[in-house]
Amino acid sequence: MQRKRTYECMCLLDNREVRKGWQPLKDAVTAQFTKHGASILSSRRWDERRLAYPIRAQHRGTYLLVYFSADTQAVAGIRRDLHFNESLLRYLLLDCPEVPQAAYEPEADFDVNAIPADDAPPPPPPPPPAPEAEAPAEPVTES
């Protein structure tokens, strides 16, 4: 038996992919929902922030929050496709009984060039300089 339900999916996107273009990436992710017959209710960027812990060597990520309605049978296929999407660092798909009103507000402008560049872990500190060769001691002259 199939039954339509409303779901909420928080997608954590790789900033390296986001820099290539926000709208194509967003369309590619939402296409994975519609491919399984889901209807997108809302899809907007939630935030770009530093992660609490590094995921796939990334220290920052962009969150995309998608509200959609789909058959309960389709969710397994959506999960599988999201799992294989390499642009996604993580995703969280939850049942959502009610879509908040804020989800329907237009998305704020997003400049991908404004993303801080500290994705990669900080480089290791340079090795300490080698101690300079001490000048040869002057020969002690015997008096």
Binding site: L12, A52, Y63, L92
Partner: peptide, 15 residues
């Protein structure tokens, strides 16, 4: 636990 999974909160230690 959901916030931890999606990388919003740490599993160990404070934010």
């Amino acid at each position: 636990k959901h916030a931890r999974l999606i990388g919003l909160m740490p599993f160990v230690g404070r934010i």
